[in-house]
Design a protein around this nucleic acid. Sequence first.
DNA 1: CCAATAAACGGGGGCCCACCCCGTTTGAGT
DNA 2: ACTCAAACGGGGTGGGCCCCCGTTTATTGG
Lengths: 189, 189
Amino acid sequence: MGDHPTYVKDVPMRADAQRNRDRLVAVAAEVVSEQGADASLEEIARRAGVGSATLHRHFGGRIRLLEEVFRSSVDEVCAQATELLDEPDSLQALTNWLRAMVRHATSSRGLATALVMSGDCGSDTHARVISAGRKLLERAQEAGAVPAEVRIEDLLKLVNGISLASAEDTAQADRLLTLAIRGIAPASY
Amino acid sequence: MGDHPTYVKDVPMRADAQRNRDRLVAVAAEVVSEQGADASLEEIARRAGVGSATLHRHFGGRIRLLEEVFRSSVDEVCAQATELLDEPDSLQALTNWLRAMVRHATSSRGLATALVMSGDCGSDTHARVISAGRKLLERAQEAGAVPAEVRIEDLLKLVNGISLASAEDTAQADRLLTLAIRGIAPASY
DNA sequence: CCAATAAACGGGGGCCCACCCCGTTTGAGT
DNA sequence: ACTCAAACGGGGTGGGCCCCCGTTTATTGG
C-alpha cells in the first residue's frame, strides 16, 4: 500500500528533513503554549518557515505532532518521579509529583489532555508516565497512606481532568488537587 | 453601533423566528449528543432546515447556542438538587447530586465543559447551578461531613474536569468521582 | 568535483467551516 | 388588503486541514 512513510527510524533522515522536523516541534511547542492544543497547524508551519505539506508529511496530523512536542516534557516528568523515590515521606513524594503533573499539564494548555483523549495514543509516552507514577503510588500504598484500590490510571486521569477544568489558572488547579487528595468527604469511607 | 440584535427579550418575537429558534435548539441538542460540543454549526442549521445565517442571527456564535441547549438540562439538575434537600443523609444527598452532575456532563459530550470554559458565560445558567449546589454543600458541611473550606465552585469545577477527562466512559467517571470524594490520601489531613 | 537519483519540499487545489452582507420574503398591525 | 419592519437564506469571504504533484536539494558513487 502507498502507506505514509511516517518515518521509520532506522533509515537515516536527510539533513534538511531532520532540521525541519526539529524546528516544527520547537515552534509547535511555542505556539501551543501561547494558543492551546487546538492552534492552527498552518500557523505552526508558517512560523517554522515550511509549507504545511511538510508538517503533514512529518507528522500526518495534529496528534502525532503534539506527541512529539510532549516527549521532552514527559522525560522531565518521569525524571522527577524517579528523583522523588528518594524522598522519605512516600505520600509527600506522590502528592508533590501529582502537583508537578498538574502544573505541567495546566501550563501547556490542555495538550496532555488532547493526547490522552485521542485513544491509546500509539506511542509509549502514556505508558512511560504510568509506569513512573505507579512506583510512587505503590510506595505510598505500602506505607498505608493511600488506599490499595486506587489505580494509577485513575489518578492520572483525575490530574488530567483537573488541569483541563482549570484552564490556565494554576492556583485553581492547585486547590482542586488539594481537594481531591484530602477528599471531599474525608471521613466518610 | 449596528449591534447584533441578539434578541432583547421584552419585544415579542415574530412567530416564525420563535419557531426557528426552538427548532435550532432542539436540533442542536440532538447533533451535540451525537457528535460532541464541537459539532458543525452549518450541519445544525442544515438539519434544522434553516440557513446558517439564521442560526448566527439568533445566537451569534456557538457558545450562546450551547447555553440554550443546556438551559433545560440545567433546570433538571437544579430540580434534582432541590429534591435532594429532603434526603435525610446530607452527605448522601450531596454525593448523589454530584454523581448526577457527572453523569449528565459526561453524557453530553463535553458540552458543559465548553460552557464553563468559555469564561463567565454571560447567562445565568452557571449561577443557578452554583446556587443549587451550594445548598446541598452547606447542609453537608453543617452536618460535619464535608470540611468547611470546600467551595462549591471548586466542587463543580472538579466535577467538570472529571467528566471531561472521562470522555464518554461513565464507569470511569464514576470511579474518579468516588476517588475524589473519599480522597486520594484520606487520612492525611 | 560532478552527475544521477531518490528524498524532501511547498504552492496550490479541494473541501469544509464560521461568520456576515444584502436582496428577498413574510408575519403583524391597521 | 396594504404596509413595512422583522426575519430569512443564498452566497461570499477568509481561514483551516489535508493532499497531489511538479520542483528543488542532499546524498553518493564515480
